[in-house]
Every structure is written in structure tokens, then in C-alpha cells.
Design a protein around this nucleic acid. Structure first.
Lengths: 145, 145
DNA sequence: GCTTTTCCCTTAACATGTTAATGATTGCGA
DNA sequence: TCGCAATCATTAACATGTTAAGGGAAAAGC
């Protein structure tokens, strides 16, 4: 029972896990009807926002590791939510784009998604919500903004 | 490109994922030498702090889903890091305890673990660190403190 | 006491996280 | 142009996350 170890009840990693769980719960509820996962939702969001992207950029923006994205893309292609094409100039590169079916999932859930986000803003209050995003950003080593 | 959707760059779920990634990176580096995972480390931490626990309480304190804990416990039993015994009164219950080998991993890494935590406190500053923990706690639906 | 319900835990099935290795392609330098 | 390093992506292997179903034991109701 070493006194060097900080209590697990005030552990930053565990607090992050639990907060994420709390935030994702209503989003997962929303998505359970659509048959896609939280990660597939993020992929659609990024593609809808930025247009077609190469897989490296897409993985970065959706906060997915590349091997995960490879599998997720295979699944989503099978569902007809995205298309994947080789770059003719650099044949190593793959480009991924959202399909109308994929965009439909975004459109169908945009309202509820916005409502969920607004709920959390209200729970924390506008100021604390922004403070939280800033503090979290300072823990992110790859923060590019 | 629906204007209803908040930008993914200020998305709370993604910010939580990235912050967690930033926090866990040095911890994973530390653990890579020991051959155990981040989750196994959490199990050892909780057992070392609280003593033997039934699996439900252990899963809750380590923020693991029960099915995950079942598998993790099997692995850790195989490594000799924990023991698992049936409660003689209520034969449904399993009790898990840390072994000397498991405690040795805690002891061997206590200093470095404390250093990593101290680094993050320094990066954010004492006040912001506490603020962050409080804000995260308000997103946790099962906050029992 | 016997059924039914509830509880604790495990198993199963599928998706993702994580690290290392492999493929395929391009670019560069001798 | 040959060889070799660097780049982009996938595959492989193992561990965990997530949800649903199953199995055994205790508790509750009649």
C-alpha cells in the first residue's frame, strides 16, 4: 500500500474514461437505431465536413489509428456509406468520400446530435464548457490549433 | 454540409479521446517494459489500494466493463499477478486479490508513475488540474463522491 | 418446498485499440 | 538504372470495448 501512489479515485486517466463514457452514452443511444458505431459516425462527420480525404488525413481528423480505419472503411464500404478510390497520380494513396446514403445518416441525426451537444453545454454552462475544451486541448500533444 | 452540425474540431468526444491519448502515452511507455497493459495496471492499482475485492466492485473501481474484467482476470491469473477465489458464503461471488508478484510491479513503478502525474500537474498548473478533474466529474453520470 | 425472479459472473460475437510486420509504390542517390 | 530508403496503406496478432445471451446460485413470493 505504497503512499507514493495517488488515489485511483482522483486519477486523471480514469476521470477521462468516465467522462467519455458519460458523453458517449446518449450518442450511442442515438446511433443504435442507425446500425453504425461511434467511430463510423465520426468518419461520416469528418467526410461530410471536409469532403473527400486521403486515409491518413481522415484517420487523423477522426482520431482513429490507421489500422482501425482500414477495417472500419471496409465495413462502411460494405454498407454503401463511403467510396474508396486510388489516387491516379500517387497509386499508394487511397481517397475516401461519403455517399448519399452516408450523408443521409448525417442529415437524419443532425438535429438530435445538436441537441445532445447543447445539453452538455447547458449542464456545464457556457463558460465551463469552453474551459473544459481548452484544458483538454492542453493535454493533447498533437494540438495543431 | 449541414450547418446544424458543430465542427468536429471542437467536439467534446474527440477532445476527450485526444486528451486521454496524451495522458496515457507516457504511462504506456512505462508499462511496455513490464509486459502488462494499461487496464491490467489499473486492476493492480485498485487491488493494491483497496485489498481483495469482488469482481463487480473491482470492475467499477477500475472503470472496466465486466466482460472485459473476466478476460483480463484470466490473463492476469496466468501471469501470477492475481488470485481468484469463490466466496464460500455466496457461491456466485468471486474474490480477486493481488499477489506478491503483482504488488512488485506496483512497487517497481510507483516512483515513475508519481513522476508522470506530477508532470501533468505542472503542465496544467495546480489550479487548472483540479478544475479539470471537477469538470470531468460533472460529465460522469455515476459520480458517487 | 417449489416456482419464479433476481443476482453475479461468464461466454459469445463483433468492432475497435495497439503494436509490429508486410506490401506496394514512389523518390532519391550513386 | 539500379539499389535503397522513405512513404502510404494493409495485414496480423493480441487485448479490450460493447451488447446480448447463457448458466449457476441465492432470494423472494406463494
Amino acid at each position: 500500500m505504497s503512499s507514493k501512489m495517488p488515489s485511483t479515485s482522483r486519477s486523471l486517466p480514469i476521470a477521462l474514461i468516465r467522462a467519455r463514457e458519460g458523453v458517449m452514452a446518449p450518442i450511442r443511444d442515438m446511433l443504435s437505431d442507425t446500425g453504425i458505431t461511434e467511430q463510423q459516425w465520426r468518419v461520416l462527420r469528418v467526410l461530410s465536413e471536409h469532403g473527400p480525404l486521403d486515409t491518413t488525413t481522415l484517420a487523423d481528423r477522426a482520431s482513429l489509428l490507421h489500422p482501425s480505419l482500414t477495417r472500419i472503411a471496409t465495413t462502411m464500404r460494405g454498407k454503401g456509406l463511403i467510396t474508396q478510390t486510388r489516387d491516379k497520380v500517387d497509386r499508394r494513396r487511397q481517397f475516401i468520400a461519403i455517399t448519399p446514403d452516408g450523408q443521409k445518416i448525417i442529415d437524419d441525426n443532425a438535429d438530435q446530435s445538436a441537441r445532445i451537444v447543447a445539453d452538455f453545454r447547458r449542464i456545464l454552462g457556457e463558460d465551463d464548457f469552453e474551459t473544459l475544451l481548452d484544458l483538454l486541448g492542453r493535454l493533447d500533444p498533437g494540438a495543431q490549433d
